[in-house]
Structure formats: C-alpha cells, structure tokens
Write a protein that binds this DNA or RNA. Structure first.
Lengths: 338, 338
DNA sequence: TTGTATGCGTTATCAA
DNA sequence: TTGATAACGCATACAA
C-alpha cells in the first residue's frame, strides 16, 4: 500500500487536497501554474490515487464480473479475451470467476460480486440459464446489467445473446442429407441448455429431412479423451451402418477422427464428421474438420457492446439472435483444399 | 449499488453500527440475543457489507492481479483455472489482464493494478521476464509479492517458478538420437525467453549427442495455421533428409502432423515429431503427439502456493525449479498404444 | 481560481 | 457487552 496521499501532494505543492484532486481529474478551473506544479510533484513522488477510496466516494468501481464454468474451455476464452480487451480500453477491470457446474457455486460468486460492487456481470455460457442463477440475480444484483452469452434469462436488467444453434444443427443434418448420408448420429458430452437446443435441432432436422426414428441416434459421452474413444467405438460397432456424425463440440469430433483413423474408416467417404464451435483446432484436424460456427466470438463482442451501452446509460436490446453457419472442410467434402 | 448499510441494520435492530459490524465479523463479545437479532435482520433485508468501504479501512482488498499476454493460449488457461480456484477458496478475487506482447501495455496494467491496491500479482509466462516489467514493478508495486510463472525476475519481492525446458529439449534430442535419427530440426513461433531457452537446450543437445552443425536446423514460423503449414513444407522440401522435428509448442506440432499426412510422410517411421506443453490436444493428434511436459500446471500450483504463503506473512522460495519430462506417444514410437 | 467541510460505508479505538 | 467517535483516501457542494 503506497501510503502517499493527495494530502501529502497538497502540502508539498502548497495548496489544498481539493486542488490536487481537481488536477488529477482534469477539472478545468485550475491555474496553469498550480496544475503544473502539482503534476510535477505527482510525477516525482510517483503518486497514484487510491482507487478504493475513489470508488467509495464515487459509488462506482469500474469493475465487471465474468462468470464462466471453466476457463479452460477454448470456445469461451476467445470471448473472454475480447471482452477483457474491450472493457479494459474503457477503463474497466474484469474479475474472473470459475464457478464450475454447480449452481451453489454460481450463486456464491454472484453474491461475492455484489459485495464487491461490480457494475455489470457477464455470464459466459448457456449453463447459467437456470433458476438458481436467475434468483441469485434478483436477490443480489437486481440493479446492475447482466448479460448472458449463449442464452437468455428473464429479468429487469438481464440481457441475452443467443445463436440459432438448433437451426444450425438442423442445417448440418440437411448438409449430410443432401450429400446422401443415410444414418446419422449426434454425440454430445454435457446436458447444457445449449446442447439440449442442439439436440432439438437435430431431431427436427432428422424428421424434416425424412429420416426414420430408428436411423437416428443421440448419444451422450464423457468428456475425457479415452472415454470419448470408447463411447464412439462401442456405438460404431453396434451401428456399423452409421455414415455421418455430428458432435456437440469440435474436441469430441477431433477425438473421434483419431478413432476413425485407427479403425481404418475413411473420413468423409465412409463416415462424414461435423463439429461445433469452429475452433482453431478444427483447422488442424486430419482431415480438417467441418464445423458449425455458432458465432461464439460475435456473441462476446455483442455482449461487451451491450454492457458498454448500458453502462453509458444508453439502452440495449434485451435479446439478440445471431445466425450460425457451417464452415465446410474435408471431413465432409474430400475435394476441398485444406 | 444496494444502499442498505450497517446503520439501517443497526437502527432496525435497536443497536449501534459497531455492534452490527461486530456481528458481521464474528467478533466474540456480543450478547447471543443481540447477535441473533442482527443476524436475522441481515438475512431479511438481504444485506451484504460493502467491500469497498471495508477495503478502505482495512487497507486490504483481497484482490490479486493476473497478467497474461493472451488468455487464449491453452497452456496458460490451465494454470489460471487452478490459480483462480485456489485463491477464490481463500477469499481472494482475481483481476485478469490480457496485456499482449508489448511492454508498454504490461507496465500500464501494472500501474492500474497498483492503483487498485491488489495484494499480489502473478505473471503468466516467460514473456514478462524483461527490463520494462522489472522497472514497473520497482516503481509501482515494490511492496507486494510478484510471482513469475516460467521465468525469474530480480527484485525484493519477486519470485520465480521455472522449469528446466532447456534440459527437457536436450532430452528430446537424446530421445531422437537414441532412436537413430540423423537430421533433426527445431521449429518455434515466437522469440520468448522460454523459447530462447529451448533453443539453447536444443543446441546443447545437438552438440552433446554428436550432430554436425549442418545437420541441425532452427526455424522460426508465424503462428497461423496456414503459415505454419507453408513454413514447414518449404523447410522439408529444402531439407528432405530431415527425420525428426521438435516444435516449441504442441499446436505447431499438430499442424505439422496434418501437413505430413498430406505429404504422405509416415510419422514416426519417416519423421518423428515432438511437441511441448503436453496439452490435451497432444493426446488426440493423429498419431498421438509425443510431448515434453514442461510442468506448466505444477508451475501454477507452485505460484499460487507461493502467493498464499506470502500473503499469510510466511516466507517462500525466491526461485523454484521444476523438472520436465517427456510423455512418449506414437509420434515418436509407433508401437505404443493410443 | 482556491479552500473548507462533509460524506462514502466500514472497521477500530476508546470509554463506558 | 455496547456505543461514540475517529479514521481510511478521496470527491464535491459550497463558500470565498
């Protein structure tokens, strides 16, 4: 705690603390000479105003809370990167919180953020679209803006950015249907609202494009590499007619590509594979992985814009829908270049 | 800003603010009945004490700053995850800062953190091992502990956790040497202190294990997938005798695996490939990627332990060295299982 | 253009 | 066991 205060600066400059304060805050009516003198002393003594004191009196902390289940998930760090950069540019700092998947921890963090007087909260991921979080918001932070990335929550000050992942997955089914695939599976790892939505899109696509219910499989897998491997392997052994798989996430698809290579199954000739998120790892799959770009990046950009508007006192859309699109690569079309 | 204060609670409870404060802080000498009454009102009115005010008077913020060049780099998010979880368990919050590679931005963030009165700073990555950062620390935060992950900085309150990546890379060379490889290359993407250290280890290994200088190549590549692809391709065309490549990072190695597959070069029979970081993506390479585990995870664990000790007023090691080891997978030994 | 006084919401030091 | 009262470091209304 560097204990030099505006009072010390004032004493040295032969003026009052308020004048120093005015100089610091670029207040106009200060004599040029005084300003220069104060500025010089500030420079010399290497003074930085104490934010905590400032925050207390201005009732504003310029801090934003970011909740994320697990910061190790690549699709979200991209968003957090841009959110932090943008907010930082505007003088805000980000408190990062790894809540994990339990709602108790989520509400705990929300209470903590309320106590720290953050000015807004960003929820990264559909996993926060639940009642416990909704109630915690009403209880602890009813007056500050809350933006949910990839979901929507009812509330006075809540905003949601969603992507049409369901339609996106439906379009994946259409793609496979158009290219003559007969037996398609959807494999996911967690029952998040987002994944449930993808499943809905999958089901809808399957019925819309004329697949029998018994030609359709929806499989859950653990997230660990070896478990993914086993799950998919067992599934393929039991369903050898499968010729197309959509994975709820690129990582699952990439792990499956490895298995398929080991099983000597040609992708996409024998089985076409599609991932979701269009992460940078999709590009380096062997073969490169076709992926549904669900616009998680744009979601974050929109989220931070929403927050900034709200903080400026402007209005913002309560609910924004972004459109996903499919980035085709060799795992569905062998004739494509890398 | 939920404007209910301890005064309101006090009024409602028919006691003074100090008593309320005592209850909140679990101070012993409070009559049971009073405590119960106050607690109940706090519960009812959903009161949470204002951290900012608290911080001002206690001169402690329980906030930690984390500097990272780019949070999107997978090897560091792993560390940040555990750092945040551990610190949060002890009541600390983390301010996350994406500084980018420019030293000006780094020092800017350090000043900001000083202003926010963080109680410690963690520097994630060898990139912070430079003079500008060192000076900024002396200038703005000379009195709080600073821990550098994967590097060391001189200073009164600075601590460093380093891994022996140089020796690690030397061992990679030894591995390739032991398995009969004749022409080995090292390919890296950025001139970070960490990568420079790896290069040193590479050079040392090459000379130690009897390679001619002209059988050794050290190549720099941009980080984008297509550029990696091009760089490695050109290199291999010009140096067709190459039979082993060590990459400064798994991602580069994975991208190269794709290229090698396209060029119909068998890994590891024709070219053995080694990455560094032992990330989860190494596991799903085709073939699975042998990788130097440089203990980045343990580095973070050690960093957070160091911070916690220091914050408790205990002492800690100024410099800790962790030993890397090689995780062998199929990209160097085809007979291994997945 | 500048200084004085007051308050932001707590904790901490006294007395009582 | 409790209550005044004074900090904590700053911003700001008001007066000068």
């Amino acid at each position: 705690m560097s204990s030099v205060t505006i009072y010390e600066i004032a004493k040295e400059a032969g003026c009052s603390a308020s004048t120093v304060s005015r100089v610091i805050n670029g207040y106009p009516y200060v004599k040029k000479a005084t300003r220069a003198k104060v500025l010089k002393i500030i420079e010399n003594r290497n003074f930085v105003p104490n934010e905590t004191a400032r925050n207390l009196v201005t009732q504003s902390t310029r801090m934003i809370g970011i909740l994320i289940a697990d910061i190790r998930t690549a699709q979200h760090t991209d968003g957090i990167y841009h959110i932090e950069r943008e907010l930082s540019k505007h003088g805000y700092s980000c408190i990062i919180c790894n809540t994990g998947p339990e709602t108790d921890a989520m509400t705990g963090y929300i209470q903590m953020l309320s106590q720290r007087n953050v000015e807004a909260v960003i929820l990264m991921g559909s996993i926060y679209q639940n009642d416990a979080v909704s109630k915690a918001i009403q209880l602890y932070i009813p007056d500050i803006p809350v933006v949910l990335c990839n979901g929507y929550l009812e509330g006075e000050n809540t905003y949601g950015i969603i992507s049409d992942e369901d339609t996106g997955v439906m379009n994946c089914v259409k793609l496979l249907s158009d290219t003559g695939h007969k037996s398609i599976a959807f494999i996911y790892d967690k029952k998040t609202p987002s994944n449930l939505k993808k499943i809905e899109g999958f089901k809808y696509g399957m019925s819309r494009f004329g697949y029998d219910a018994d030609k359709m499989a929806i499989i859950e897998t653990p997230s660990e590499v070896d478990k993914i491997y086993d799950t998919v392997k067992i599934f393929l052994n039991e369903n050898p007619e499968t010729d197309g798989i959509i994975f709820s996430e690129d990582f699952l698809g990439l792990a499956a590509l490895q298995l398929l290579a080991d099983m000597n199954i040609k992708v996409p000739q024998q089985i076409a594979v599609i991932g979701i998120n269009n992460s940078r790892y999709a590009e380096i799959g062997i073969p490169p992985l076709t992926s549904l770009d669900n616009k998680l990046y744009d979601t974050s950009i929109t989220a931070v814009r929403t927050i900034l508007s709200l903080l400026k006192g402007e209005t913002a859309c309560k609910k924004v829908l972004l459109f996903s699109d499919i980035v085709q690569r060799k795992s569905t079309r062998s004739e494509l270049p890398n």
